[in-house]
């Protein structure tokens, strides 16, 4: 056993839409705004490209929290992408909560390309909430555990 057991760090998967939140993440980086390195960003053409299977697959592969960032409703590059995301994720999160999975593990945030600060703040806040929840035990695939 390693002597200095590092403190538990959550693994966060962030789906960022290419036009707004990914650019927001970029801006956060340019402005040297720090957010935890545990966030793994996956770029998607639009937030509505994210299929519930992706979110469940992320949890299966060891994610402790999944956050889906998209453009603010109304500014979607494809005009209605994030409206569908909003409906789809509202139903999915409600179902996950219905199955007893902690609701703080999933979140949708609208981050525009100019909101670098909001992106960093959101990531910090989300990381803290997920870290406080601890490891994901309710939506895990034992075979993928180390």
């Amino acid at each position: 056993m390693s002597i200095s057991k590092e403190p538990y760090r959550p693994l966060i998967v962030a789906f960022c839409c290419n036009w707004c939140s990914y650019a927001g993440a970029d801006l956060a980086g340019n402005n040297r705004l720090a957010y935890p390195a545990d966030v793994k960003i996956i770029r998607v053409p639009c937030s509505c490209r994210v299929n519930p299977t992706f979110i469940l697959r992320a949890f299966q592969r060891g994610a402790d929290g999944v956050i889906l960032c998209g453009c603010h409703p109304g500014d979607c590059h494809y005009t209605s992408g994030n409206y569908y995301t909003r409906r789809r994720m509202a139903l999915l999160f409600s179902m996950l909560d219905y199955l007893g999975i902690e609701r703080e593990r999933t979140r949708v945030e609208w981050v525009s390309a100019a909101e670098g600060a909001k992106f960093a703040a959101t990531m910090n806040d989300f990381c803290e909430t997920v870290a406080s929840l601890g490891e994901n035990k309710r939506l895990e695939d034992l075979r993928c555990k180390k």
Binding site: G62, D141, R143, C144, K146
Partner: peptide, 9 residues
């Protein structure tokens, strides 16, 4: 085969 990331089962 299931690729579990930490090995293939």
């Amino acid at each position: 085969d299931f690729n579990a990331g930490n090995g293939i089962k």
